[in-house]
Design a protein around this nucleic acid. Structure first.
Lengths: 331, 331
DNA sequence: AATATTTCCGCAAACCTTTGCATATCAAAT
DNA sequence: ATTTGATATGCAAAGGTTTGCGGAAATATT
């Protein structure tokens, strides 16, 4: 195992001082052009890499960011992560991606790891709604900036970035009601999450506002299996819905299986609309019309919030990421 | 911004030396029980976290691992990453996840970032097949262990972990030919990748071995769109296939859309089998039978290889991750 | 020719931790 | 009373970097 090149190393080889080498490499005006050249050449030759640990120790400015989500294998968060990773790398920072598995205890250990790495900031999608905010306040006090993503807390005083849930639900209702429908079956996620409540409220209100004659059936599913089962029951029932709204990919994936095995035609027998990042809806034929909540856009926004703070902007900002309708053949 | 607690900090507060504090916290036998207690209590109170950068500088043993894949948003790699992240965190290490975007140049900058962080090891799924191995040899010389995953180089002398491609293709052929089929349409990925060639060779050989009467049509698709188009053509052609083999999720996703819009029934009119991590095949009704190439299993294996090396095992090992048939309703 | 100014470079401290070695205290053994 | 041994603690160096300050040499100014 070869010894790593160091400043000391280079300086003694060149017969100059360590500080001169350091300054030469960082293009300090005090150093002459000729010296800079010599130093740079040798550094190149020896494959010199500054020791980031020593740098941190001296400067106290870490170049690592943390990111905590419940699971990397999630086709919304993966695009959020993908965006943030690219941006982070672009500015020469390192990103620590951690999975909380939706468990507050694991979430804590993820945070500990961020602290251990002296992360300058943490992006986090909260695991559960009733999380204790005290640790996060402490983190901020200690100089670790927090940006909450997607599932954001109600507390003021933090940077937050979330999809515009209300708008998404309204757009979905609008699109669905462009054509007349007798009965809409609207399938939502876990009632515990505020995201569910927001979307349900907005969707319901918009439907009754636009078309008070339309019957609205509502269901809640915690997972794909349950979504499938409830959809099956609805389709078999007396008042078979002729329109289906799914508030998330997970829900959509379950519901559409029920539709497929029912033999009903999309959109002739039943219209479908979802809220999605865009991957799942394109897997089927016809493709499903959806309101796009772009993970990529959310990631970019979150990163921007982080940068703003790291560059000195101090007042916390709450951002809503815009959504848009993507039309396909399911309406 | 509060000042971080340090050993010096604690030591002066307690009126004892830094070394004593350090040893007390690491449970060194030289330190008396009473001192240990006092130190631990204060450390707890002050929220002391050892400064990992200082630790590294002193011990020269970094606790970070790097991982490079083309894209995090990939429903095979995401499960690989998920597994490795959890294992890495379990041993108190930090994982740096980086995306090469299938670009050798970006791949190099990812590697630079790993070097900058003094990663003890790097997991990597190569971006292109004809990659120059020299940088990786150099990395090993400098003490950074490399574990190649999935798309592994031919070179000897490296740790490698890959799916058992040949076996996967053979199992798929076996399962497909349990029932008689007139014409099989087998759709593969980019011919450039050795993974494609391996799977094609194995599949073709097995088909002709088991059932020389069966007609085998072969196609190559670089993406989903192309897979869909080729499948559509095949289904519209004179000799419509009654069986379909898709070598990957991407291919399957495209092909199945063509099948769905053709109106053909699965499996009555056409049987389908794929090779997959398991997510995509369960989205449809009936669910698609597939040979499981588990990203999770691959991740676990890769991590194990890394650990073996970090614990002193030096000779490089090449591991093939086993695959298995998951039966559903598409055959 | 003396002084002022610029240009270039080195000294040394500090960041926080780990660890080999020395030291101090006290009890037990001679 | 002296030595031995064990127990508990401290000293100081090292790891690689950045940076304020001081200083020597070269150049410019009077």
């Amino acid at each position: 195992m070869k010894a790593k090149a160091t400043l000391k190393n280079i300086s003694s080889l060149l017969g100059i001082s360590i500080s001169t080498v350091s300054r030469a490499l960082s293009d300090h005006p005090d150093i002459s052009a000729t010296t800079k050249l010599k130093v740079r050449e040798l550094a190149e030759m020896l494959d010199y890499e500054p020791n980031s640990y020593a740098v941190y120790l001296r400067t106290n400015a870490s170049k690592v960011l943390g990111l905590i989500v419940e699971d990397i294998s999630n086709n919304f968060y993966d695009s959020v992560i993908s965006a943030i990773e690219k941006e982070t790398r672009k500015i020469g920072y390192s990103l620590l991606i951690l999975q909380s598995s939706n468990d507050p205890e694991i979430e804590q250990s993820c945070i500990r790891l961020c602290k251990y790495n002296r992360a300058a900031g943490i992006f986090i999608a909260l695991s559960s709604s009733g999380t204790d905010m005290a640790p996060f306040r402490k983190l901020e006090e200690n100089g670790t900036h927090i940006v909450f993503m997607d599932k954001v807390p109600d507390d003021e005083g933090f940077d937050k970035v979330a999809m515009n849930d209300v708008r998404a639900a309204v757009i979905a209702a609008d699109a669905l009601l462009e054509k007349k429908h007798e009965t809409i079956f609207a399938l939502f996620g876990d009632k515990e999450f505020s995201i569910t409540r927001n979307r349900e409220k907005a969707f319901t209100e918009q439907v009754s506002k636009l078309s008070s004659g339309t019957k609205l059936l509502t269901g809640y599913a915690k997972d794909r299996i349950s979504a499938r089962e409830q959809t099956r029951l609805a389709l078999d029932s007396q008042e078979r819905p002729d329109a289906l709204f799914c508030m998330s990919d997970e829900i959509l994936a379950g519901a559409i299986k029920a539709v497929q095995s029912s033999g009903l035609r999309i959109p002739e027998d039943i219209a479908i609309i979802g809220i999605s990042n865009g991957y799942i809806p394109t897997l089927f034929s016809p493709e499903i019309t959806y309101v796009e909540t772009s993970g990529h856009a959310l990631g970019i926004q979150a990163f921007e919030s982080m940068m703003n703070h790291l560059n000195g902007l101090t007042n916390p900002i709450s951002v809503e990421v815009p959504v848009r309708l993507v039309r396909a053949g399911s309406l």
